[in-house]
Design a binder for these strands. Structure first.
Length: 821
DNA sequence: GGATACCCTTTACC
DNA sequence: ACGGGTAAAGGGTATCC
């Protein structure tokens, strides 16, 4: 049989001790196909330098003789090839050792502790990754495949009889169809409503399913509704059965939930176990498998289970405005839609079941829409990184970049480095932290006519331009690049990096250039696909330095990471100096940026200065003009006399305001302070003086004092970041969380908290003794909101103009107050 | 018993 | 344990006199 095929999900099975890969995907007319392929697992043994040809033959003969039984499998070295390769950029002689079963490679490697073998590598990539690297059948790309259809065959123990796809094909040939990218997957979103967050303590009340032209809520507790999409079953057991049935009938490529790795799927599985009912969600009717690492991952055979929260969190949260990653906030930002208003209650207390059904369905609806929204990003990531969507939708940034490297080592003939073991990780973590970037201490004030320069992808361009990596680090002072001085345990040290291009900087250069190209593509042809591609390379490019300094990375290097940062500091400080020498006053700079006054220079002259600065930079390093600004505001720190770093506000020539670090942008300040400060900053930047801002402040204070401020505006928002019991310091937000628990509202890590500081008759001076939850009756503590919220957020701004707002508000300085009215 | 330095905690910037 | 260091800031806690 011959057909087109797009691989979506990969797994494997063993048959007669060998590994076989199952790839699930579709053909052009939407039929589900399972492709079975064989796989010859291998790893590398790197030989010591001076091993002679004769000795090599002896080693090969020894390696070939390895054969043993492992976990009931007959396993052995199948064959050995001698190859010339590179390891960390150094030329090496290596043996490519093929074993019977991937899972035994490590044990084979353990038997190779002989003096002629220097290192053993490549047995820890993961079976699927290894397979994809070897056979080059990449996820989410189209192939023309041919193979034999298994039909009621006894091959592989009759595997085709249990796989519920239209065809099961044993692969014989494949060829990529270039430039063919169009693919519309079948996507089903789902969401549970339960009586408890713990499956041992509460039943599943209903499950909603949502897709294109498909909506359904299955429920059992209440059996009357006006909603047509609700289907009732007898009890919770039938609910679970019905859910499996519906998923099977729909046959999705992607089953999508929100926080479903942690909640929905584990909950379903546990309830099924408690009720002793099967949950055959897999295409082979297998149960979902929950793996427990740092965080849980829920896998379903043949269907890619996507937990959208994880993808958004790891890959996109840093570029988002949402104040939390809740489905509600994220939907507001990306869909301009939000969850249905419904107060979740225990099923015994629910009054409006119709609304509950609607709420449940709408959650699936939002999840589905979000998946559609992020689909271009998800598929581009998978294509670029060459890992299945199950992986890329869950992996952190360091894993993404590492996968990209592993899939591209072949072009350099590089043998992969191994993952660090627990001891190695422990040692890396014990090392002194790498000294970070430089932040310029601003001189507080309101400035006119500003310019901001910044380095484009600074860390990445430094790695590329100076060939910095674990592999290029060398002892040799000739033909090498010198690092700036690095502080190592109080001593100044210099590191050297070879000038011979290393695979890591070269690969990064490819990413960097693709980033530039796709950014251009997006500008010229803006659409979700070009945007996603541009974004994916942006994210990969931006994560490179973090990867080098991450203790869990295969290509971690303290020396490389320290050198990158030393260069970051050096270039930033040098640029500041050069700008000052050109006659400008530098106001501020953080890591890769410099803000300075334009003085009497024209825009043209500024562009010429930029050009000159760029000519003096090496390699791909580049400074760009971020913008011209009409005005900018910098303030002092609350305590002390120094200028506050990471806090400033600027207005550009289109009146667009950029605010960084101020309380306005901090979620843990109440709305009243945030809005008030925001207005004050806006008025000052627009007017160029503080007059109207002060009038505004006085009005707000008056409103506060006469208790005309709405309750909503004084809520303080925060989050619990670790288990509630583990807090050493009992702060107001911990008290708020405890109060929520007392009310029976579950508090988990990252649970949003909303509380206010109330007037109470307690003698205690502690703020925490005045904490009340959002719904609790009470009056706000006027003094607290004045002294601890409004005044602090405004006073150092007015200080810039020599105004002490405390004195004005206290009425002590009637004279200066008169000046304003 | 009050002032203060320090620690814990969250959130932001790049 | 799952990208990092730098920084501001509030509130609690320990420590001093």
């Amino acid at each position: 049989m011959e057909t087109e095929f797009i691989p979506i999900d990969y797994d494997y099975f063993d048959f007669e001790s060998r590994n076989y890969i199952r790839i699930f995907g579709r053909d052009k007319i939407g039929r589900r196909i399972c492709v079975i392929d064989d796989f010859e697992p291998y790893f590398w043994a790197i030989l010591k330098d001076k091993i002679t040809g004769k000795k090599t033959k002896e080693v090969i003969d020894y390696v070939k003789s390895i054969s043993f039984e492992n976990k009931g499998r007959e396993t052995k070295v199948e064959r050995v090839e001698e190859k010339s390769k590179f390891f960390l950029g150094k030329k090496v002689k290596a043996l490519k050792i093929f074993g019977t079963n991937y899972k035994d490679l490590h044990d084979i490697a353990d038997r190779l502790g002989i003096s002629e073998i220097e290192k053993r590598r490549g047995y820890d990539l993961g079976l699927i990754t290894s397979y994809i690297i070897d056979k080059k059948i990449y996820p989410m790309r189209w192939y023309k495949i041919s193979g034999d259809v298994l039909n009621n065959s006894s091959d592989f123990g009759g595997i085709d009889n249990i796989i519920g796809t239209e065809f099961v094909i044993k692969l014989t040939k494949k060829e990529e169809i270039k430039n063919e990218t169009k693919f519309s997957p079948k996507v089903l979103a789902y969401d549970l409503e339960t009586d408890s967050l713990k499956p041992e303590k509460g039943e599943i009340l209903m499950i909603s399913l949502f897709s294109n032209n498909f909506k359904k809520v299955i429920s059992w507790k209440k059996k009357q509704t006006s909603k047509k999409y609700v289907e009732f079953v007898k009890n919770e057991r039938e609910l679970l059965e019905k859910f499996s049935e519906e998923v099977k009938k729909f046959s999705p490529d992607f089953l999508v939930g929100y926080n479903s790795d942690n909640f929905d799927l584990p909950f379903l599985k546990t309830r099924a176990k408690i009720l002793r009912v099967p949950l055959p969600l897999g295409v082979d009717s297998s149960e979902p498998k929950i793996s427990r690492g740092i965080s849980m991952r829920a896998k379903i055979s043949g269907i890619t289970h996507v937990d959208l929260l994880k993808f958004i969190k790891t890959t996109y949260s840093q570029y988002m405005q949402s104040e939390s990653l809740s489905l509600n906030e994220v939907s507001k930002e990306f869909l301009k839609d939000s969850k249905k208003d419904f107060e979740i209650a225990h099923s015994s207390k629910v009054k409006d079941w119709d609304l509950y059904f609607e709420y449940n369905l709408h959650d699936s609806d939002l999840t589905f829409q979000l998946f559609e929204k992020f689909w271009p990003d998800i598929i581009e990531f998978s294509r670029i990184i060459k890992e299945p969507i199950f992986e890329i939708s869950r992996n952190g940034l360091s894993k993404q970049i590492e996968s990209y490297i592993l899939h591209n080592l072949e072009e350099f003939d590089e043998i992969p480095e191994k993952k660090p073991g627990v001891n190695e990780i422990e040692e890396r973590r014990k090392r002194a932290p790498v000294e970070g970037a430089f932040v310029y201490e601003p001189k507080p004030g309101l400035y006119e006519n500003l310019v901001m320069f910044d380095f484009t992808s600074m860390h990445t361009s430094i790695i590329i331009s100076h060939n910095i990596s674990k592999g290029t680090l060398t002892d040799s002072k000739t033909n090498s690049i010198k690092s700036p001085e690095v502080n190592v345990g109080g001593k100044k040290r210099i590191f050297y990096f070879s000038k011979n291009p290393g695979f890591f900087p070269v690969l990064l250069k490819e990413i960097f250039e693709k980033r530039k190209k796709f950014k251009e593509d997006y500008k010229n042809n803006p659409n979700p696909i070009t945007k996603a591609r541009s974004n994916a390379f942006k994210i990969l490019s931006a994560s490179a330095h973090g990867y080098v300094g991450f203790f869990g990375a295969r290509y971690y290097s303290w020396e490389a990471s320290s050198t990158i940062l030393a260069f970051v500091r050096k270039y930033n400080i040098e640029t500041i100096k050069k700008i000052e020498e050109a006659g400008h006053r530098v106001i501020y700079g953080d890591t890769d940026s410099v803000a300075f006054t334009r003085e009497n220079k024209s825009k043209k002259e500024i562009r010429e200065l930029l050009k000159k600065l760029n000519e003096e930079l090496p390699g791909v390093m580049h400074i760009e003009l971020e913008d011209f600004f009409k005005r900018g505001l910098w303030v002092k720190t609350r305590s002390g006399e120094t200028g506050a770093k990471k806090k400033y506000a600027m207005i550009d020539e289109d009146e667009k305001i950029k605010i960084r670090g101020f309380e306005t942008v901090r979620r843990d300040w109440c709305e009243l302070s945030r809005i008030t400060q925001n207005q004050i900053i806006k008025l000052i930047l627009k007017e160029g003086n503080e007059k109207r801002a002060l009038e505004y402040l006085i009005k707000i204070v008056e409103k506060l004092k006469t208790r005309k401020i709405q309750k909503k505006e004084i809520m303080i928002k925060s989050q619990i970041k670790k288990p509630l019991e583990s807090y050493k310091s009992i702060t107001p937000h911990v008290i708020a969380a405890r109060k929520m628990q007392e009310k029976g509202i579950p508090v988990e890590i990252l649970s949003p908290l909303r509380y206010y500081i109330a007037e109470t008759n307690t003698k205690s001076k502690l703020v925490r003794d005045r904490v009340k939850l959002e719904g609790d009756p009470g009056e706000y503590d006027l003094n607290y909101y004045l002294e601890k919220q409004i005044i602090p957020s405004a006073e150092n701004i007015f200080q810039v103009f020599g105004i002490n707002i405390k004195e004005i508000l206290d009425g002590k300085k009637q004279e200066s107050l008169k000046k304003w009215f």
